[in-house]
Design a protein around this nucleic acid. Structure first.
Lengths: 106, 106
DNA sequence: TTAGTATATAACCATATGTTTATATAAAAT
DNA sequence: ATTTTATATAAACATATGGTTATATACTAA
């Protein structure tokens, strides 16, 4: 692959918050406010991290009324599956979100 | 894997020069001055990039008299093979080095 | 032991990055 | 229409990062 594209990809992954986001999205698509809830960070911060991931083509978005759901993309990277598989399991965090009623239903 | 270790790994890969170094080392081990030669960058700059890669456990070093040879490590990362396989082929650069007599022989 | 070669480290500086606060946009609900 | 909710963007600031120059260390050769 092109070094510039690869550099952008690894730059996008070179942040703990963004790896957390990818680890979460690996389980299911989530909207911004759900990620804010789980990661306990401000909404603008999460939005800007998502923008970087989107620019690197690691995630894609889908609008559903007032929510925008983000999910894993990364199909342009041959190594993406192996990389994502090494991320820690975050299902507990998602269960917590659901248990606390924080899950957006749609 | 641990998120902190993964973050360090992706930070180490999040730079074009370091990806270049990894792409070169994928072919064969090289010493600092050979990398300086090929990448046309200053020696301290190359050394500092190598330090980052070493700290992230992506490369290892081997001393042979006055030279220090660097080679790919990365065995702690399950995804490393797939990642390295996506790097561009740099064999031409290494051929150039050999043709110009810049290769250290030992 | 001294000079030369290879590499590492340190100090400095300019640019990039991540977070915060404030504001803008877009859709929904009233 | 106006308010509320969800998200994005912008400006400001502190910290991180990468490059350069200067210097230190380690090994070799004379």
């Amino acid at each position: 692959m092109e070094l510039d594209q690869l550099t952008e990809c690894y730059k996008a992954m070179a942040d703990k918050t963004r790896l957390n986001i990818l680890a979460l999205l690996r389980h299911e698509e989530l909207c911004v406010c759900e990620l804010v809830d789980i990661l306990k960070m401000t909404q603008p911060s999460i939005s800007q991290h998502l923008r970087k991931l989107k620019q690197a083509k690691l995630v894609k978005e889908r609008r559903n009324s007032q929510w925008i759901f983000y999910s894993i993309d990364g199909e342009i990277y041959p190594f993406i599956k192996a990389s994502l598989d090494s991320l820690p399991d975050m299902s507990a965090k998602i269960e917590e979100l659901k248990a606390s009623g924080g899950k957006v239903c749609c």
